[in-house]
Computed example of a mutant assay.
Amino acid sequence: MPSDIPLSPAAAVQPNGLSAAEQRAIETLYRAFNEQDPALVHEATTPDWQDIPLGPGQAPGPAGLGPVIAMFAQAFPDVRITVQEMFGHQGRAAVRARITGTHRGEFFGIAPTGKPIDVVMHEVHHLRDGRISHTWHLEDWFGMLGQLSAWPPQA
């Protein structure tokens, strides 16, 4: 499955302030979801990568994201993460992105609705030796619950 995220040609520093290796690592992390391939997480991150905060039931480290990717693939088989903006400086990067898909499988106890989702996501990455060592993320999960008509709770 091709990625919506173009890979950068090799260069010392991209116009967005990141090295080609840093940009490629970040793009590869999102490709792991788009291509439903957890092995890409190991390629993009350091062995001691920290995902902050961990999702419900998520184990730490790169291997901990594999089950999350599988859960998203089951609930939203057409899940896509589209980067809207990425910039960085001195081993730090900020990403503004969107998660889209169609709710076709159970997601945290919510039965499939067939409804589309469009979730805003912001992440800050620390990079070391061309790979991601830390990720802090914030997604609009309450907004997504509203899109699925699961929030606010119905009386």
Rank of each mutant, 00 (worst) to 15 (best):
V95C: 11
P56N: 04
K115A: 15
G130R: 08
V119Y: 10
A70R: 08
V13Y: 04
H42P: 04
M1A: 15
R24T: 15
H137N: 11
R96S: 11
P60Q: 07
T113Q: 10
L54S: 12
Q50G: 01
G61A: 08
A93S: 14
I99D: 02
H137I: 03
L29G: 01
P9C: 01
H89Y: 01
P60F: 06
H122K: 00
E35M: 13
E43P: 02
Q50L: 07
V119H: 09
V120P: 00
E139L: 09
R131S: 05
T28M: 10
E139I: 01
P116E: 12
I5Y: 05
G55K: 10
L29S: 03
W49C: 02
W49G: 01
A155L: 06
D78N: 10
A97G: 05
F72I: 05
A93M: 06
A21L: 10
G61E: 08
L29V: 01
R128T: 06
F87S: 06
F72L: 14
E123D: 11
A21Q: 14
T28Q: 05
L54G: 13
G66P: 08
T28F: 10
R92I: 08
S133C: 15
A39R: 14
R104G: 04
M86A: 11
E123K: 06
R31H: 04
F33S: 03
I99Y: 14
A44R: 04
I26D: 09
A21W: 04
V79I: 14
P15Y: 07
P153G: 07
Y30V: 00
T135I: 12
V79D: 03
F72E: 03
G146N: 10
D4N: 15
D129C: 01
D37V: 02
M86W: 00
P53E: 10
E22M: 12
H122V: 10
T135H: 06
Q23G: 06
P60M: 07
Q36I: 07
L127R: 02
A44N: 03
D4E: 13
Q154N: 03
V124G: 00
A63H: 11
H122W: 03
G64H: 07
S149Q: 14
A75Q: 09
G143A: 06
H89P: 00
A39K: 06
H134C: 10
T102C: 12
M144Q: 08
L29C: 03
A21Y: 04
G66M: 02
A11S: 13
N34F: 07
Q14N: 13
P15C: 08
V124C: 03
P15F: 03
G55T: 04
T46M: 04
G101H: 04
G57D: 06
Q90Y: 01
V120G: 06
Q36P: 01
E22R: 10
W136A: 09
G105R: 08
F87V: 02
P2N: 11
E106D: 14
I26P: 02
P67E: 02
V41S: 08
